[in-house]
Design a protein around this nucleic acid. Structure first.
Lengths: 358, 358
DNA sequence: CCGAGTCGTGAAACCGTTTTAACTTCCCCT
DNA sequence: AGGGGAAGTTAAAACGGTTTCACGACTCGG
């Protein structure tokens, strides 16, 4: 007597298993599994009993066990530098949304720009069996980067997963990775052209980051626009201060200490522009009357800057959505394919004609 | 002859298993497992052979198989309304950072404010075996909400996982969930007090959301501050337009069409403030000379608004970190415990004395 | 020289689910 | 009456690891 405690009741701690559901419904685990997953026809009466038992026990399937035998949960991972950057957040939201629409789970990882953490995270995703890994954001393209990405791509491909690079280059055309990105050069050319059309001739590019492919392309676009408008090459001035508000603030501050030899600035992105705007205001100058400023990305709060920022709209959420859409489209078409998304400039109030004294 | 193809080589497609590693190293899977996980002592020579084989084959363990027998990967989930909201992004970043520091994996889910998606996501996390689920953001507290959260809490607790509510109420003290939040009332009282000290007496609260506990607390703090400064209760005016830039823009615009009977506005959060600032500017008025405006949360770009916004700093990233830290601290201490994080106001340039004509 | 302990290793059980293959019934058709 | 399906159900074999248990080889002390 008293040994009835030994009987297999629901464990005191731990999850409800399908065995307990089957027991309660008076069927075998096989039947219970079929009734629950709807995979195989099961008579209505039986199915109802099983479903009822599952509901009563608040049963949820063990995703790990399921993944082990089935193909595994459809899971996508998006890796960004940091979640709080508005641009990355938008891309991540796009990925999340598109994934959710298809019933996929979305995991986001932040690297803080550290290659080691990126590698760790990709490894983690391989362990977890992610079927889609999306790496977002420009990087400096050195040998270490190339071999790293080649390794990711081959490892993921070997286990049937896809790798998408958003805004970063493919090391080699035969590396099994997709690339989706904006036409950085065209965007920068357009926005620089906008300044040139307003009459500016002495324009500085603030926020270069030599080796970073995204920024290099924007610098190239900036240079191309100057050339198109007949500005001598010597007129180009690129300040390689990197991205981020703090860098923009500092670099612009230093620039303003010199004799001012520019009437407009093209910022590497909107955060740099935010810093630049603040530095200009701190120097007692006005935008756009004294200096015109343009940004890049059109982050959600760019219209709330002082003044509202003229910038290049890069549909970041669409970038994220496109990444998963393209990756999931056709299996064959994938390797080495390269997609360019268009951008356009949005005109607000940070650009005017250069001061008359010029 | 020719049937050597049948031998168990590495599968053409699919992942490398521990069996292949063991084979290549000339040991059993048990030994391979031990060498790899370092769980059980293994002579250096054998370990080296196994590690070498694993490296050669680029082996990564199958997390699902491992989770099935072991406790499962340490995984935390954070659920927010949307990733692109700067406040939520910061909280998510805090959770991600603290989780990563401890070697945990972090999954973020976005609900778009839809209770159904919230429920689906929590269920998903139960299936995945998440050990920590963090729900962020105020909600309207109705019966549906209460029973929903009670269910989450009990289900997660039954399988040994923890539930943390960030800035939303616990339905009942004996529900096994932790609460971590800011002292919304104190923050609102302080920032309203700041306006009162500057001489304002007719102050409107923009962005109420009746039923939402976070907003209700801020409204209460606003009212308390007015009372403390001897402003008659009738002087309080709360516009229930909800949160978000668009709502702030619209509501403020409508407010300005009436005869203007206020000199300052307390916005429900910084995004509402952004909309309000724009509406005020569009009406041809100046901040702070004509109207003073304060926000709530101190999002990263609040200092770039026009003018830089005086607001309440809520250390959002710290909120996220605290949530995981507290949840992981001591198992017993958990249930029903309630933590309040302090806030302080940061003074910028959106507040001045009321216009003299007042 | 022998028994006890230690060390290194492997076979097998186990985790919770899906799926295959087999086994009953039961019914219909010749 | 008997055979061929079809329908409903189940036992058992995967899936890929970890862990327990047992076993053999070696070392060491008496």
């Amino acid at each position: 007597m008293g040994n009835d405690m030994v009987s297999k009741g629901p464990a005191a701690k731990g999850r409800v298993t399908i065995r307990e559901v089957a027991e309660r419904a008076g069927v075998s685990v096989a039947t219970a599994s079929r009734a629950l997953s709807g995979n195989h026809p099961v008579p209505a009466a039986t199915r109802a009993r099983v479903l009822r038992a599952a509901r009563d026990l608040d049963y949820v399937a063990n995703a790990h066990a399921r993944a082990l035998v089935g193909g595994g949960r459809k899971m996508a991972a998006v890796v960004v530098r940091q979640v709080t950057s508005p641009f990355y957040a938008q891309v991540a939201e796009g990925v999340e949304a598109e994934a959710a629409d298809r019933g996929w789970l979305c995991v986001v990882g932040a690297t803080g720009g550290d290659p080691q953490r990126e590698m760790d995270f990709v490894r983690l995703m391989r362990e977890e069996g992610a079927r889609l890994v999306i790496l977002v954001g420009g990087v400096v393209e050195d040998d270490a980067y190339r071999s790293r990405v080649t390794h990711y791509a081959q490892a993921l491909d070997a286990s049937g997963a896809r790798l998408v690079l958003c805004g970063r280059p493919t090391p080699d055309p035969d590396v099994p990775a997709l690339v989706v990105e904006f036409d950085n050069e065209a965007g920068a050319r357009a926005i620089t052209g906008h300044l040139l059309s307003a009459g500016h001739r002495r324009i500085v590019f603030l926020g270069g980051l030599p080796g970073n492919t995204a920024l290099d392309a924007r610098v190239a676009g900036y240079r191309a626009a100057l050339a198109e408008h007949g500005v001598p090459l010597a007129g180009a001035r690129v300040v390689d201060c990197g991205l981020g508000r703090a860098n923009g603030l500092r670099a612009m501050g230093e620039l303003l200490k010199d004799t001012r030899e520019f009437t407009a600035v093209v910022a590497g992105d909107d955060m740099v522009a935010a810093g630049a705007l603040r530095a200009i205001a701190d120097a007692g100058l006005r935008v756009p009357e004294d200096v015109s400023v343009v940004g890049y990305n059109d982050i959600p709060l760019a219209e709330d800057f002082n003044p509202p920022l003229t910038t290049v709209r890069t549909p970041a959420e669409e970038l994220g959505r496109a990444a998963v859409r393209i990756a999931l489209r056709d299996p064959e078409h994938a390797a080495g394919s390269h997609h360019l998304l268009g951008t356009h400039i949005v005109v607000r109030r940070s650009v005017a004609a250069p001061p008359r004294s010029d």
